[in-house]
Amino acid sequence: MACLVGDAALLLPNKKRDIMHISEGVLSGPVLISGIVLAATGTAIGLKKLNYDRIPRAAILSAAFFVASLIHVPIGPSSVHLILNGIVGLILGWGAFPVILVALTLQAVFFQFGGITTLGVNTVIMAFPAVLCYYLFGRLVGKGPRIALPAAFLCGSLSVFLAGILVGLALTFTEENFLKAAYLVVMAHIPVMIIEGIITAFCVLFLKKVQPEMLPGKIP
């Protein structure tokens, strides 16, 4: 019984609303449309790079990310849930765009976080940092632990930081007086950045030991 109780405590369901997804009805038309165009472009590139033989892999990994992003990690008296877009980028490269788009669609259908009009913007917020981190750190995480560990930490925290900045930009382009709110969004993400950095670093360390071929390292 004790084990069941512990189980339930670990599995805090999605009780907390994070501010990584922008809700419907906040952003202006031009911002929504730019989001859709950018997300469509990224997704098209990603789909082009995903051959049919890699679709099941991308889909099942994406299911794993979906589940992992529901994990709540304690921080002081509160808890944050993992975002993991840095490591999505490392493992999938440009494939991050379609995979994140699908995950956000399912999140909207299951929990109504995000929605139809903001799907494009929210995809760019998560997937653009993921792809950027793939190019910045993909090679470095393949090296020895002295380089790989700090690189993975940076990858995890930078991807969250950039996502926060993109949320801020989307708000500021909608209405310049949202600047203060945008600033608060970025500030609110500092603890998450640190935790994502630590988690990504250990996660990369683990994958290097257990299944190094999942990480890029030898990208052409």
């Binding site: 892999r57 794993a64 992992a68 994990i71 990690v73 993992l82 493992i91 299944q211 999942m214």
Partner: peptide
């Protein structure tokens, strides 16, 4: 938690 997430990815793959 990081190892848990990593294990999840390995099993998924």
């Amino acid at each position: 938690f990081a190892y848990l997430v990593g294990m999840l990815f390995v099993r998924a793959s």
